[in-house]
Design a protein around this nucleic acid. Structure first.
Lengths: 208, 208
DNA sequence: TACGTTATTGACCATGTGGTCAAAAACCTG
DNA sequence: CAGGTTTTTGACCACATGGTCAATAACGTA
């Protein structure tokens, strides 16, 4: 018997995500969100709870989507794991050198989070771990294929790839062009080929 | 004959930089700056012109300082260029995994800039190029030393290092610990070696 | 010591913000 | 068609913000 909603929640979150990606959490005004999503302030409010909550939702969706995308890009069976990661990086280089002003919500959350216990921070941390896990799986396959040294530290390499891709994102935003970014991606991939150096102290693991 | 200023401009810029590094441009309130710098709003205003201008000043100083620091770290004559870059990266890993909530002003400017022609954006671009140039010089030395393949693309490798360090910065902020970040730094360095060189030495300056 | 110049101070302001409220509208069921 | 429930709407608000103003203080000079 209640009046049904006129909107689809995921659409709203997605539109909001666009706004946040373009402006950031703080700089995105509630009015921007209202305009982008099409529904009124109050509707937004009682459906999500506020700007921050909405951002968290968008962040969560963005993270899922990103993970899925990478996972998919690395999951094809028609090429070796190593080739896939290579293709993935090269594609990313092109994508990130495009001129739109988007910044991934994860990066935004990271930068705009106010403290270690900020929900933004914890969500981001989780996202990074999740992403690293995807890379790790692919790298593990590569190792099993013999394309990586047996003693390669798949975990740290996975985190390394997260770092590199974040850095490339920033560089892309700074206006570094497609050619350079592609070269950077290729440089980054060369880290896979060498012999494993001695491990740093302790056994690196993402959670600490 | 005019009344002299009671403050030193560079001190003010430096204090302001602290605030900006901790909160960002948008989130740093004028009041924060007043509190941190010690002088009044109006003094701030007619000495610098406004929050944005002050940020630009701080950004510029930060960039200079960062470039100088890296340049210095890479400029010692008592070790090979390759060893220096290695030490630099390892030190950076430790520094960036510290728990303070600082984010380099360059990254902040990058993320908070609103458009391609935003002063923030252009200043940042310049800063990145400058930093890359420092890396490039060091890498060139390494190449001359025979520690890098003759056909190594020093320019793109330099940009690669900028990307990696930015990524490490973000990861550090995300709470990735010292051990993992150090491992990432070592992974990153392997891009230099390709499959030819393995390091024979231990890892210097792991703790400092 | 008085003057001119500039720095400083603290009150002040317009504006845009995230968030709230109460009334009206829309829907499903009975 | 009526009742109950929830959404929608648009006006409203308290407040913090960046920025400004006019008065005052401090200094070097003549």
């Amino acid at each position: 018997m209640p009046r049904p909603r006129k909107f689809v929640e995921s659409d709203v979150v997605s539109s909001a995500g666009e706004v946040f990606a373009a402006h950031g959490l703080a700089a995105a005004t509630l009015d921007d969100l209202v305009r982008a999503t099409g529904l009124g302030k109050q509707s937004l409010y009682n459906a999500f709870g506020g700007k921050r909550e909405l951002f968290l939702r968008a962040l969560s969706e963005d993270r899922e989507e990103a993970t899925r995308a990478v996972s998919e890009a690395l999951g094809h069976e028609d090429a070796s794991a190593l080739e896939q990661i290579r293709g993935h990086m090269l594609r990313l280089a092109i994508e990130l050198s495009s001129s739109d002003r988007r910044v991934s919500l994860t990066t935004r959350a990271l930068v705009e989070s106010t403290g270690e216990d900020d929900p933004l921070s914890t969500a981001t941390k989780a996202g990074i771990e999740q992403l690293a896990e995807v890379y790790a799986q692919c790298l593990e396959h590569a190792r099993e294929d013999g394309d990586l040294p047996d003693d390669a530290n798949v975990q740290s390499l996975a985190v390394y790839f997260v770092a590199v891709t974040r850095g490339m994102e920033l560089l892309g935003r700074a206006g570094v062009g497609r050619a350079v970014l592609t070269a950077v991606a290729l440089d980054a991939l060369r880290a896979l080929h060498g012999q494993r150096m001695e491990a740093a102290d302790g056994s690196p693991s993402l959670r600490e």
